[in-house]
Amino acid sequence: MKIAKKVCLIGRFAVGKTSLVRQYIENQFSEKYKTTVGVSISTKVIDIDDHSISMILWDIAGFEQEGHYKHYLRGTQGIIWVLDGTEPESFDIFEKVSIPDLDSIPAICLVNKCDLKDQWRLNEDSLQKIRQYVSTIHYSSAKTGENVEDSFNELAKKLLGQ
C-alpha cells in the first residue's frame, strides 16, 4: 500500500533542518526555494513492512516570523522538531509555534549537532520542558548522519500508526 504523508520540519534558523534533510533524502528541490518561497520540499520513500510511505518533507524557513510559516504547516501529518543542542534559544520553538491539534500529530524531536557535544547546552530541565510537547527525542548530527535515518524512519512508523 502506497501512502504519502506531509511532514514539516520545525526549528529556528540555523538549527540544521536543511542539513538533516539533505543527509536523509534522495530527491530534493533546489534549496533556493527556501529563501524565495520560504519552504523547500523533499521526498523520501520508505518501505515499512508491506507499506510504502512517501514522506513529503517540508523544510520551512522563517519561524522567527509567525506569518511566514503558518500556512505551510496547514494539514501537516507529521512533525520533526529540530533543536540545536548548542543553542538554548532554539529550545523555545515549542512556545512560539502554534499548531492546532498538536497532540494528535505524530512527532519526533531531533536535538541536532550532537557532534558538538563539547558545546552542548542541553540540560535535564530543558529536556523536561521539551517532553511536554514531544515524547520522542533523539540526538542527531546532520554532519555525521548520526541518528538521522533512524529518527526519520521512526517518524515514518508513527505515521503508519505503528
Binding site: K6, Q28, F29, V39, I41, T43, S54, W58, G67, H71
Partner: peptide, 20 residues
C-alpha cells in the same frame, strides 16, 4: 516528471505563498 509528490507539495507551497 522527477517526483510528482514533491511537485504537488511545492506547487501547493507556491500557491499558498502567492495567496498569502
Amino acid at each position: 516528471l522527477k517526483d510528482k509528490n514533491a511537485m504537488s507539495a511545492m506547487l501547493t507551497a507556491i500557491k499558498d505563498f502567492v495567496g498569502d
